[in-house]
Simulated assay, not measured.
Amino acid sequence: MRISAVLFDVDGVLLDSAGAHREVWDAWSAARGLDPEKVWELTFGRRPEDTVRDVAAHLDPATERRALDCLLAEEMGGIQPVEGAVGLLNSLSGTPWAIVTSGTRDLVAARFAATGLPLPAVQVYADDVPHAKPAPDCFALAASRLGIPASECLVVEDAPAGIQAAVAAGCVAVGLTTTHTEDALGQARMCVSSLADVRSLLTAYGSGADGS
């Protein structure tokens, strides 16, 4: 296994945002007479508008996406970096990396600024591809923009839809068990419990990550 670049999901991987997202989706679901539990299960790794289509076909996905983005923007203070995120990203000097997220550019940029995380040169958002996760388009685009074969890109994902997308793109998928169990991330090449484990993997497989 040769690793030449790293592609990170954002929520649940670099940002600990599950609590804030749960509050937003619960409030949104309750206001529309939907079952919050059923809705929440369909949010991970997916564009909000795709979740809306599945749970409330009578609503306009674009309108609901804007409403959800406004609610999410209000939860900025409840979001922190996942433990080890700062150290891992700082260790990647010389290693190409990108973020690949179902979030929006403005919201992600604001969250990274608020939490002190650096943004990479290559950023792929849901609106950049015709088909979002679990389709492979987003990871294929990130690999293309980095100029590195997908087979040499390590993808770090916490959601089944993201793992499915990474595998379909031909990347090396690693499941981070921050929001889902190892069983739920069964399509991954391997699962780890922390970003420290990801850093060890990168050091072991010659990515160029600083092992200090």
Rank of each mutant, 00 (worst) to 15 (best):
R2W: 00
I3T: 12
I3V: 15
A5E: 02
F8W: 10
F8V: 03
D9H: 05
D9V: 11
D9M: 08
V13L: 14
L14H: 04
L14D: 06
L14G: 04
L15E: 09
D16L: 12
S17C: 03
A20H: 10
A20F: 14
H21T: 01
H21C: 06
V24E: 09
W25K: 11
S29T: 12
A30W: 04
A31K: 05
D35M: 04
V39Y: 08
W40G: 13
E41N: 14
L42T: 09
T43S: 12
G45E: 01
G45K: 07
R46M: 13
R47W: 04
V52K: 07
V55F: 06
A56R: 08
A56W: 04
A57R: 15
H58I: 04
H58R: 14
D60M: 06
D60I: 08
T63Q: 15
R65Y: 00
A67M: 08
A67K: 04
A67P: 05
D69W: 00
L71Y: 04
L72T: 12
A73M: 10
E74Q: 15
E75V: 07
I79Y: 02
Q80K: 11
P81R: 12
P81E: 05
V86P: 00
S91R: 05
S93T: 14
G94R: 07
I99F: 04
T101R: 03
S102A: 15
S102H: 04
T104V: 03
R105S: 13
A109S: 07
A110I: 01
R111N: 04
F112H: 14
F112R: 12
A113T: 05
A114R: 07
A114D: 07
T115V: 10
L117C: 02
P118D: 06
L119G: 04
P120A: 08
V122H: 02
V122M: 02
Y125K: 03
A126K: 03
D128Y: 02
D128T: 00
V129Q: 05
V129A: 06
A132E: 01
A135I: 08
D137A: 07
A140F: 03
L141Y: 01
L141M: 10
A142Y: 09
A142E: 06
A143F: 00
A143S: 13
S144A: 12
R145M: 06
L146V: 12
G147E: 11
G147L: 02
S151Y: 02
S151R: 11
E152V: 03
C153I: 13
L154R: 05
E157M: 06
P160F: 08
P160H: 09
G162I: 13
Q164M: 11
A165M: 03
A166Y: 13
A166D: 13
G170C: 07
C171N: 08
C171F: 08
V172K: 02
V174E: 05
V174N: 06
G175M: 11
L176M: 06
T178D: 12
T178W: 03
T179F: 00
T179S: 10
T179M: 14
T179E: 13
E182Y: 01
A184P: 04
G186I: 02
R189M: 12
R189A: 14
M190L: 10
C191K: 02
V192C: 14
A196S: 15
D197I: 00
V198N: 10
R199I: 09
S200R: 14
S200A: 15
L201R: 07
L202A: 02
L202G: 01
T203I: 13
T203G: 15
Y205K: 07
G206I: 02
S207A: 11
G208L: 13
G208Y: 13
G208R: 10
G211H: 11
G211Y: 01
